[in-house]
Computed example of a mutant assay.
Amino acid sequence: MDHSLSQKIIQLKKEKDAIILAHYYQRGEVQDIADFVGDSYYLSKVAKDCKENTIVFCGVKFMAESAKILSPDKRVLLPAFDAGCPMADMADAEGVLEMRKKYPDAKVVCYINSTAEVKAVSDICCTSSNAVQIINNIKEKEIIFLPDKNLGQYIQNQVPNKKIILWDGFCITHKKVTKEQILKVKDIHPDIKILVHPECEIEVIELGDFVGSTGGIISFASNSDFEKYLIVTEVGVLHELKKRNPNKKFFNPLGTMTCINMKKTTLENVYDSLLYSQHEIILDEDLRKKAYNSLINMHIFGR
C-alpha cells in the first residue's frame, strides 16, 4: 500500500467533511482507508445515517446511487465513475412495468443490485442478507423478483408458500463457478466448509454448508471453530476474513473470483475524487423520490 497516499486521503477526508465507504469486494488497500467496510445493506444504513456532508462510495454505481437516493442533501462521489454492475444493467424500468401488467396482483421486489430507474418502479428493495425476511413479511403471495434469478430461486426454496416470478438476470462473477469445481475442492480437502453467496447457481448453493451475504459469510467463518473454508464469492472478501481470522485458511474457487468492476477503484481514484469533488452522483429529483420509497421499504420490511 502507498502509505503516503493513504495519509493524504485521511487528511483530505477530514478537511472535506467526508466519509469513505467501501464494499467487501474492493481492493484491500481501499478497504483499509475506509471508515466503514461492509455489504450492501450495512453500507446503505451507514449512508442514510451518517453526519458527514460528503460520501465517497468505493463500490459500483448502483451502490452510490442508493446512497444518493437515501441522502439527497449530501454529495455522493463514486471514485471509479465507470464501475458498473452487469447484473443491474440486465433489468430495465420498461420491462418491470410490462411484468406488472402481466401480474397485477404481484409485489415487485428488486435486489439492491439494480439501477435507480428500476428501484423507482419497484415496491420494495432488498439485499442478499434480508431478502428472505422481506419476502416473508410481504402479505402478497405473488412476488416479481429481479434481476437475479439465482437469488430469486434461492428465496423460492426458502419461502415455498410464495410464488416467485423470476427475472432472467445473473451475476457474471458468481455464474462462473460450477458444481464440479466445488466437488473437486472437497475431494482434496474433505474437512473444508463451503460458504456460498446466493448469487451462485442453485447446484452450487446446494453444496454450501452456509449460504448468505458477504457479511453473513464473514460472520459465520469468524464465529466457527473450523480451520478451512472455501469462500464462494468475490475474492475481495478474503481481505477482511484473513484480518479477523489469521489462524484460519481461506480458499477461493477458480483461483480467484474477481469482479473487474469492483476492482476498478484505486487509492489514486479515491484521492482525486476527494481533492476535486469529482464523479458526483446526480439524480433527477422525481426519479429519486420514487426510488426512495423502495429503499425505505427495505428498511421497514427488513426489521
Rank of each mutant, 00 (worst) to 15 (best):
Y292H: 11
C171T: 01
D187L: 11
S4P: 11
F250G: 12
V185Q: 06
T54Y: 07
S219M: 08
V121K: 03
K176T: 14
G59S: 07
D73A: 08
V237W: 01
V108I: 11
S40D: 01
G236A: 13
K162L: 05
I192H: 10
L151P: 05
S222T: 15
T256W: 09
I112R: 02
L166P: 08
M262R: 08
C58Y: 01
E52D: 08
I10P: 08
L146R: 07
M298S: 00
T115L: 03
L195E: 09
K264S: 08
L12F: 06
C171G: 08
L78P: 09
I165K: 06
Y111E: 02
M63K: 01
F145A: 00
E201W: 00
D225E: 15
L151K: 03
T54M: 13
R75V: 00
G215Q: 00
N157A: 13
P253H: 05
V30Q: 03
G95Y: 03
V118W: 00
K243L: 14
Y271K: 01
L43P: 05
R27H: 12
M90C: 08
S294T: 04
E52M: 06
E240P: 07
D272A: 10
I300A: 08
Y103Q: 04
N161G: 14
T233I: 04
L283Q: 09
S6N: 12
S44H: 03
E15R: 03
G169Q: 02
E280L: 00
K179G: 09
T266S: 15
H189G: 12
D39F: 07
H23S: 14
D105I: 09
L195T: 15
M298I: 03
E98S: 15
E240V: 10
L275C: 14
W167R: 04
F36E: 10
L146G: 05
N223C: 10
K74V: 13
Q156T: 03
P147S: 12
V211T: 04
P147C: 09
K264A: 06
E203W: 03
S128R: 00
A64V: 14
T233C: 12
L12K: 06
I144S: 08
Q278Y: 01
S219R: 05
F220T: 08
N136P: 13
S71E: 09
S224H: 06
R244T: 15
V118C: 02
N137W: 05
N53T: 08
K228S: 14
G84D: 06
T178M: 09
K179E: 08
I188Y: 07
Q158S: 13
E227C: 10
T54S: 12
L195M: 11
L151C: 03
I124M: 07
I9M: 04
R100T: 15
K179V: 13
F36C: 11
L267W: 01
T266D: 11
L283N: 07
V118H: 02
A221E: 05
K243N: 13
R244Y: 08
I124G: 01
V235S: 10
F145K: 04
C259E: 07
T256S: 11
D17H: 09
G169I: 01
L77P: 06
L207S: 13
